[in-house]
């Protein structure tokens, strides 16, 4: 178990988190449901967490893992505020479609 990853080069982790990050970005761009978009943003943050942990592990430096805690705190706070906003909007327009919110423009 402990030796399972020894032969995995670090680049693979970089690749994985970049991929996750880009999936998140594309999800944000593709979806119209605000809740799904919010989840995609969470995915982006998670890919960063993975990146931080992998850096921390390969460099034997715990700072990265501590930083992940802060990212989690922020992610939780963001989700709370974001969902509160969505609930408050849903009361007014009865929709979570991002394209229903286009009033402010030009």
């Amino acid at each position: 178990m402990e030796n399972a990853l020894v032969s995995v080069p670090h680049n693979w982790y970089l690749l994985l988190s970049s991929l996750l990050f880009c999936i998140g970005v594309m999800g944000v761009l593709f979806r119209r449901n605000v809740i799904v978009i919010l989840m995609c943003i969470e995915l982006m943050l998670n890919s960063v967490n993975l990146l931080l942990v992998s850096f921390s592990a390969y460099a034997q430096n715990a700072d990265g893992q501590v930083f992940v805690f802060f990212v989690m705190v922020v992610a939780a706070a963001e989700v709370a505020v974001g969902l509160a906003l969505i609930v408050s909007i849903y009361r007014n327009v009865a929709s979570t479609d991002i394209d229903s919110m286009k009033k402010l423009k030009w």
Partner: peptide, 9 residues
């Protein structure tokens, strides 16, 4: 609402 959501996202 819209301002808050746009800013947030």
């Amino acid at each position: 609402n819209e301002a808050g959501l746009k800013y947030f996202l």
